[in-house]
Amino acid sequence: MAPREPPSPASERIAAYRRGLRAEALAAWWLRLKGYRILARRFRTPSGEVDIVARRGGTVAFVEVKRRATLDEALIAVTPRTRRRMEAAVRLWLARHPAHAALTLRFDIIALAPGRLPHHLVSAFAEGE
């Protein structure tokens, strides 16, 4: 039997992309179980992205989803750069959906790790932090 060749960088990127899609789908499902209505998924702009926009009552949550080997690694992966890019995308989303701007707005994180339930960190950071 011939030895297996290591995966190419392109195939690794595709696999990571698919894991990310599954993580975001699981996070959206988790939010729905908690009574949220999903307003948008994968809202992308040239300056940033919001993984999930969800509403429950008078609150709109802009959610960053991170999947890593441990929940702690997932939480640490939300860097200041990630937050700035997310904030830029949120400003554009609100400009396109002005009716939601009057509601309570917050930034959440959903951390995922294999074999663990999702960890929803409510109000994980404030704008400009």
Rank of each mutant, 00 (worst) to 15 (best):
R19Y: 10
A16I: 05
G20K: 10
A40C: 06
F43L: 08
F43V: 04
Y36M: 02
A124E: 02
A2Q: 13
R42I: 03
G58P: 00
A77N: 00
A74K: 01
R55M: 10
E5N: 15
L105I: 02
R85D: 05
L71K: 10
E24T: 07
I38R: 00
I76V: 14
R91G: 11
V78S: 04
A27Q: 08
A101D: 12
H97I: 00
P9K: 11
W29M: 10
G57W: 02
L103K: 05
G115I: 08
F107C: 13
A95V: 04
A54C: 09
F43I: 04
G58C: 00
R96W: 07
A99E: 11
G35W: 09
A10L: 14
E24S: 07
L112K: 10
K66I: 03
P6W: 12
R22F: 08
V65A: 03
E5G: 13
A16D: 12
L105Y: 01
T82Y: 00
F125Y: 11
T70R: 12
H97A: 04
H119L: 14
M1S: 15
K34F: 07
S47T: 12
R13V: 12
F43H: 12
L117D: 14
W93R: 06
R42L: 07
F62W: 02
Y36G: 03
A113W: 11
S11P: 05
V65L: 04
L33M: 09
R68H: 12
R19V: 12
V60M: 09
L33V: 02
